[in-house]
């Protein structure tokens, strides 16, 4: 299986002012922008004395300088470019280099592939997702994605939306993605979901089986898109999951609750998961997800991004 691309940062987070430390699992990675504004990624470890490069700085020429002894590295190749005390000797053997990772940037996210030789991901549609954020969750990435499948309300917070346990269409494979549509209610006085005949909104999620990247679309019962979010959960150190997301509201919001989405904080990934509720959450859709992953991953190359067709409708399969 090809090494996946991980969306490890939002574009705004990666600057030439200060390096950014992120993780892909237990692998620490440092990100910054070079003099051309191109995002770069190295292992967050100086090959000299193993200090985190993220505690250094970005030089005017775009090199990343270690904060310990001042060694500077080129972002594209990882090659050592300068040792402050050896200014007369600026040619170093090829082994004098930090590990460089493949970097790609599109759709407002910076992605890293730990396999430098990986082919770049296909670019996503050029859309603006003005709402964005990052959450750190004390939950493994796999459990976070499973929780998203079984009860999105434990990991997502959409203003006024209550997620029900009932599905318009259950988890299935569609173009290499895991797709499902869940009935939702507006958070107002109403019958409990098990006794409700009609639900006014649904949440459609399209999830990559390998990375868990998910496009979530909130839609009303007249097929109007109320909100679209791109969510990227990435495994970080010590079982923490870093979740980056971007969202935008639909063009046609009708009804009091839909209009309230325009208020600040209409979408967020929860930093804290209700552990008591999580412990007793029944595995239903996530059980199916595991079966589907096993069927999909060895065989089918997945779409480059779950946002490739953001307005496509959900089809159904038994």
């Amino acid at each position: 299986m090809a090494s996946p691309w991980w969306k490890v940062a939002r574009s705004e987070e990666v600057t030439s002012a200060k390096p950014l430390a992120v993780d892909v699992g237990d692998q620490p990675v440092v990100l910054w922008r070079d003099a051309q504004g191109i995002a770069r990624a190295l292992e967050d470890r100086c090959p000299h004395r193993r200090a985190p490069l993220s505690r250094g700085c970005v030089r005017d020429n775009g090199w990343l300088q270690c904060g310990y002894h001042g060694w500077s590295y080129d972002g594209e190749s990882g090659r050592l470019k300068e040792i402050p005390n050896m200014k007369d000797e600026q040619r170093f053997p090829p082994v004098y280099k930090a590990i460089a990772y493949a970097v790609a940037e599109s759709g407002g996210f910076v992605s890293v592939n730990l396999d430098k030789a990986s082919a770049p991901p296909a670019p996503v549609l050029d859309e603006t997702f003005p709402l964005n954020g990052t959450a750190h969750v004390s939950l493994s990435q796999g459990e976070w994605v499973d929780t998203l499948f079984d009860d999105p309300g434990l990991v997502l917070d959409i203003r006024g939306v209550q997620f029900t346990p009932y599905l318009m269409s259950e988890l299935r494979e569609e173009n290499g993605l895991l797709v499902m549509e869940r009935f939702c209610q507006w958070g107002k006085l109403h019958l409990p979901s098990y006794a409700t005949a009609e639900f006014p909104i649904t949440l459609i999620t399209r999830t990559r089986p390998d990375t868990g990247e998910t496009q979530a679309v909130l839609r009303d019962d007249s097929f109007r898109t109320l909100l679209t979010a791109q969510i990227a959960p990435v495994a970080a150190a010590r079982g923490v999951t870093q979740v980056r997301w971007r969202a935008r509201l639909g063009e046609e919001l009708k009804g009091r609750h839909a209009l309230a989405l325009r208020l600040k904080g209409s979408f967020a990934v929860r930093e804290n998961v209700d552990a008591a509720a999580l412990r007793v959450l029944i595995r239903s859709a996530s059980h199916r997800a595991q079966q589907l992953r096993e069927a999909i991953l060895p065989a089918t190359p997945v779409s480059s991004d779950p946002s490739v067709s953001p307005d496509s409708s959900v089809s159904a399969a038994a």
């Binding site: 639900f199 959900v314 159904a316 038994a318």
Partner: peptide
Amino acid sequence: KPVRRAVYSHP
């Protein structure tokens, strides 16, 4: 007004 139902996830 259309209402939504499903049978085996078929809309």
